[in-house]
């Protein structure tokens, strides 16, 4: 089917089978390899992207579902070549190890912060409980998300 959707802020149009998984559409057709596939069943979160403003697992979303919607991937984060506050916070808080879970983790955090700019630690832990990181213990990731939330709040006040 012909898909019309917003990808990282740009309107695009492409032909794809409606049952194609969003993760495959992104990686194979659009060459956006930031979202990773770790389990293929919505358990590990490494393929997390935003569908409109909600964090979703790209392995569980089908191409047909994105028609008329907006998809944001890790590549679409940040403005004018600057890193998004979440990306900066992940780097500065040493919240990155092997990096394989990082794009999904950041997008899950972005989804949370779009709904709640001042999340508690428990809310953060819950929001990323669908994202697995095996190289660390989530502590630095949680700190990074808290720092980023601060930066977003500051930005919102300006």
């Amino acid at each position: 089917m012909k898909l019309r959707f917003i990808l990282n802020g740009q309107a695009i149009e492409l032909e794809a089978p409606p049952e194609k998984r969003l993760i495959d559409l992104l990686r194979e057709d659009l060459h956006l390899t930031g979202a990773k596939e770790g389990c293929g069943e919505g358990e590990c979160g490494s393929c997390t992207v935003l569908l409109d403003d909600a964090a979703v697992h790209a392995c569980l979303v089908l191409a047909g579902q994105i028609d008329g919607h907006s998809v944001t991937t890790i590549e679409g984060l940040g403005k004018d070549g600057d890193l998004d506050p979440l990306q900066t916070a992940f780097i500065e808080n040493m919240a990155i190890q092997c990096g394989y879970c990082t794009p999904g983790m950041i997008m899950a955090a972005r989804g949370l912060l779009l709904k709640n700019l001042d999340p508690s630690e428990a809310e953060i832990r819950n929001a990323i409980s669908g994202n697995i990181c095996r190289c660390a213990g989530y502590t630095q990731i949680i700190q990074a998300i808290q720092e980023a939330a601060k930066a977003y709040r500051k930005e919102a006040q300006l």
């Binding site: 390899t33 930031g34 990306q87 900066t88 780097i91 500065e92 040493m94």
Partner: peptide, 15 residues
Amino acid sequence: PIENAAAKAMGRLVY
């Protein structure tokens, strides 16, 4: 910060 931290945060590191 770990090697390639920015590339990892941007989803640009090529595995």
